[in-house]
Structures are given as structure tokens and as C-alpha cells.
Design a protein around this nucleic acid. Structure first.
Length: 156
DNA sequence: GCCAACGTTGGC
DNA sequence: GCCAACGTTGGC
């Protein structure tokens, strides 16, 4: 049985890790996600080869800046066990890890940023339920439909 | 199980 | 830097 390729959007603050950083390193473990919904998307939804829209948040302007692919299945985020890490979680154990991450591989940098305010102009086509532009939504990992993927990249 | 307090996210 | 929106924690 084959599963159709899925699509995702992943946010990163460029001050911490930008699309240029990903281009440089090639592949990056997407550690540090500490939100259950985002974790569940990575752990339960992602498969190797899925498409990722790389989004810059908390910057001017915020928007989609590149594409990547899911490079590994989800595995326990090692930073949850590291006492020295900012992401250390004292309630996580090796037997029962709380947090998971995938590795993300650089695909390409867009020729221009697709800014959030421009994405909002297409709310009608993207749908009310699109998490990126839902009021108050702060999800850092979210699903994108094939139609949304196509539309968003057509804006480039 | 409720909910106040607190911490975080992320646009502006 | 501000702050609205949201998620989590922990006392009760």
C-alpha cells in the first residue's frame, strides 16, 4: 500500500535557524518542538519524502522562504534528555519519551519571500481552516493540503 | 475537574 | 518591546 505524499509548513525564527542555515547544513534535526499538536503531526503524520514549506516567523516580514523535505521518520527528540539543553524535560524518560522530531532536508530557497500578508489575501482559496492564517493560531508545525501547497508556491 | 497564574508564541 | 491569544501547570 502506498500513501500519497503529504505536505507541511514548519516555522522557524530566522535569528535562530534560517533557510540559509538549512541550505548550508543540508539536513537538520527539527528538535525543540514542545507543543503536543505539533509533535503529533511530526510523530503520527509525517513520512519520509513529504514536502515542507519553510516559514520564517517573528521577523519582518514573516513568510514562506523555501521548501524542504522530511528526511527521516520521527524519533525521540534527544534534547529532552539533555540536562544542559534549553529543551530539557524532566518528565521525559528513555522508556517513555514525550517529544519527537524528524530531520528536515533542504530542497530550495524561493526566488522571493511569500509574505504572510500576501498569503492572507488568498484566505478564500486557502480555506477558513488553514492554521497559518487562523486567528490566534500559533502552531509551528501544521498540515498543508496539496491544493494549498500548489497555490502558495504559485505565488512565488 | 476547575481555573488562576504563569509562560510562550509571534505579529505588529 | 508590546501584548493578544493560547497552552500548561498545579493548588484546591
Amino acid at each position: 500500500m502506498t500513501t500519497r505524499r503529504r505536505y507541511w509548513l514548519m516555522k522557524s525564527e530566522p535569528d535562530a535557524f534560517s533557510i540559509d542555515d538549512l541550505a548550508r547544513v543540508g539536513t537538520e534535526p527539527w528538535t525543540g518542538v514542545r507543543n503536543y499538536q505539533a509533535r503529533n503531526f511530526m510523530r503520527n503524520g509525517m513520512h519520509v519524502g513529504d514536502g515542507v514549506l519553510f516559514y520564517h516567523s517573528n521577523c519582518t516580514p514573516p513568510g514562506i522562504v523555501g521548501t524542504a523535505t522530511v528526511a527521516t521518520p520521527a524519533y525521540p527528540d534527544p534534547t529532552q534528555f539533555d540536562r544542559k539543553s534549553h529543551y530539557f524535560d524532566p518528565k521525559a524518560t528513555q522508556e517513555e519519551p514525550r517529544w519527537f522530531n524528524v530531520d528536515v532536508a533542504f530542497e530550495r530557497k524561493l526566488s522571493r519571500i511569500i509574505p504572510l500578508d500576501e498569503i492572507r489575501e488568498h484566505r478564500d482559496e486557502l480555506g477558513e481552516e488553514f492554521e497559518l492564517i487562523r486567528r490566534g493560531s500559533r502552531l509551528s508545525v501544521l498540515p498543508v493540503s496539496a491544493a494549498q501547497w500548489k497555490l502558495l508556491l504559485s505565488l512565488e
